[in-house]
Design a protein around this nucleic acid. Sequence first.
DNA 1: CGAATATAGTTAGCTTAGCTAAGGAAGAGC
DNA 2: GCTCTTCCTTAGCTAAGCTAACTATATTCG
Lengths: 151, 151
Amino acid sequence: MPRNPPRQDPLPEAVELADRLHSAAIHLLRRLRKQDDRAGISAARLSALSVVVFAGPVTMGQLAAAEQVAPPTMTRLVAAMERDGLVERRADADDGRVVWIHARPKGTRLLHAARERRVATLATDLAALAPAERTLLAAAAGFIERLGSES
Amino acid sequence: MPRNPPRQDPLPEAVELADRLHSAAIHLLRRLRKQDDRAGISAARLSALSVVVFAGPVTMGQLAAAEQVAPPTMTRLVAAMERDGLVERRADADDGRVVWIHARPKGTRLLHAARERRVATLATDLAALAPAERTLLAAAAGFIERLGSES
DNA sequence: CGAATATAGTTAGCTTAGCTAAGGAAGAGC
DNA sequence: GCTCTTCCTTAGCTAAGCTAACTATATTCG
């Protein structure tokens, strides 16, 4: 069995933490997906849509980078959202290669509706936690996001 | 920030927290998936495998429930793991309908190897955090898991 | 006992998300 | 102008998730 990894021997505590975060993320997402499905949009699309809505018009490349996804994946996500009337594609005036993605009113509306719906279930659970625990979770989310953006 | 949570009218703060957890979970998983792919196993399989390894032999139904997944999904995950020699299916002696899933040595080995690999990347990032912050993340993982198991 | 029902898993068929490889089309450099 | 790069799309694959429908075994009950 693996005893001492030659490297800097990553704290056993970090191994367990990685496992728990992994498991927690999987289970949280499976749970949220069910709610988002009922809202009529998938988790991946909702995540991309929120970037479009909140970060204003963005190019396909920026959006793929923001979502840490390969370009073809974003092409498909945007195609689906466009078909559903949630976003709009516009050509760039100067550079014929780039495509700008704008949120349409329906997309903005749906994003907010989905937020409401997610919170309807999550908030009940979150309300069971002490305020300090919610604060803790918010901080944790921040750390996790920062981890993801490092690499 | 948090005043008195009156149940109804879900605190705007809870809405934002739900969003951030959602986004953080998506991005963390996308990140971890890449590492797990290199280890030769997907996130979903790894999660199921860890149940089999740590919670001893389990039936298909127990496994699907533990992973909060529909039975056919687990059938497919187990089929893949069996094909890869990670787990073994055994008939129940008394009840001809149930199937027990046992971990095979290769599966146990692979699980631990994947843990090592995940931590190799995550631990570097986690090491950049203060010990208190790691403690915070561990607590957060606990809360998130508890949320997931409530419904 | 035997028929009806309930339970455990599987098969079939669909949607979605992710990837790589390859290509088109527009810009940039020499 | 020709090459090279950049931005995005198309094509084609794997995998995870679902529901509906099926098989096979247990169980219940008339």
